[in-house]
């Protein structure tokens, strides 16, 4: 029989594990945003090697499973003498993967800005870096927010992959309690609820940011 009261005394541990999940997710979202910005600027740059590198980066990171990427970072790099903690390896893998998706989201945003914006800024004598920073990117970022939101939610869920390289986040912790108590349904449903709460909170925060930025429109 199902016995959810069993879960009760483990709740503090699950909450603690959720913090680890949130930490990985938020940090890799931030890494993804910064990396995505760098990659998209390379991609739209007129310097051919940069844009080719960006194409290559996006092609590989989007075209291969995140789990393979994570295992390469965590299990592969030590072979080359680079030892990373499970947490750091997860951050790097998730962040680099998110960077590829964020770059594509930003590219869509930048392309949606009418050509006249660039022309008006050029006609005022502004140079390319200033135009990007002051005119194009602020507008493109707003357009990109729904996409960034989707990617963030995906990332939060995908952070469960970190359990496979022994990070004690929510999934890993639930798994441990589930098998030691032989109560898989109870613990995995609880884990699902915890994830749902976190993605709901994240959606809420993103909506707030979106509506705050939309004031100007």
């Amino acid at each position: 029989m199902l016995d959810f009261t069993l879960v009760q005394k483990y709740i503090p541990f699950l909450i603690k594990a959720s913090w680890v999940t949130l930490e990985i997710s938020i940090l890799s979202i931030l890494i993804g945003l910064i990396l995505g910005l760098v990659i998209v600027l390379m991609k739209i740059s007129s310097i051919k090697p940069l844009s080719l590198f960006a194409d290559f980066y996006i092609w590989v990171l989007r075209g291969t499973p995140m789990l393979v990427q994570l295992f390469l970072v965590y299990f592969g790099l030590p072979q080359l003498g680079i030892e990373l903690s499970p947490f750091l390896a997860s951050l790097i893998a998730l962040g680099m993967n998110a960077g590829a998706y964020m770059a594509e989201i930003f590219r869509g945003g930048i392309q949606s800005i009418p050509k006249g914006q660039m022309e008006a800024a050029l006609s005022l004598g502004m140079d390319y870096p200033t135009i990007m920073r002051r005119i194009i990117l602020p507008q493109a970022f707003r357009v990109s927010i729904p996409g960034i939101g989707n990617e963030s939610i995906t990332l939060l869920k995908d952070s469960s992959l970190a359990s496979l390289v022994t990070v004690s986040e929510l999934m890993m912790t639930s798994q441990r309690f589930a098998s030691s108590n032989y109560a898989f349904i109870e613990f995995y449903i609880t884990a699902a609820i915890f994830y749902l709460i976190m993605t709901t909170l994240l959606t809420f925060v993103l909506r707030r940011i979106e509506s705050k930025l939309a004031v100007a429109d």
Partner: peptide
């Protein structure tokens, strides 16, 4: 470009800036 101003058919104001910011942007940045 600093000496030649241009006005476009579609106005091309910067939508994320107020009217005042639109006018102030280039003299400050350029």
């Amino acid at each position: 470009r600093r000496e030649v101003g241009m006005v476009f058919q579609q106005f091309n104001l910067f939508p994320h800036m107020t009217v005042l910011q639109n006018v102030m942007e280039a003299p400050i940045r350029v």
